[in-house]
């Protein structure tokens, strides 16, 4: 089956993986950085065939429907459902979500 697989020209490095993982809030053990970089490069190398397409003057497509955003009237029609909002919270207290301390 048709399959083009090559190392991407500007492949990701272990350092890139570390950065991407940090941005994504994913933990990657140090010894996994290289293998993951290799894994991602396998996919990115295949994706790079997009460079062959002539996209000169082509508008990017951001939605599958060619419409303008519908606008809604400014009415208070929602909210007032604190119990629903907190129902699945791992921890809540006195109407608040309780989370690990976000400042030092």
């Amino acid at each position: 089956m048709a399959q083009e697989k090559s190392k991407p020209k500007n492949g990701v490095t272990a350092k890139d993986v570390k950065k991407i993982a940090k941005l994504s809030r994913l933990h990657v053990e140090a010894d996994r950085l290289e293998p993951i970089a290799e894994d991602l490069n396998g996919i990115l190398g295949w994706i790079e065939q997009l460079a062959e397409v002539d996209v000169e003057g082509v508008e990017p497509m951001t939605s599958a429907v060619d419409m303008a955003a519908p606008l809604r009237a400014d009415n208070v029609s929602d909210g007032g459902k604190r119990d629903d909002v907190l129902k699945n919270a791992p921890k809540s207290d006195d109407g608040f979500f309780v989370v690990p301390r976000s400042v030092e």
Binding site: R72, G80, R82, F96
Partner: peptide, 27 residues
């Protein structure tokens, strides 16, 4: 100065009890 939020129908008033002006969209 809108009555409801930018993307949901919950109220925008000041000083309400915590999480009482929250829709499932906001959360």
């Amino acid at each position: 100065a809108s009555k409801s939020k930018l993307f949901s129908g919950s109220a925008t008033g000041y000083g309400s009890a915590p999480n009482t002006q929250v829709s499932l969209v906001d959360a």
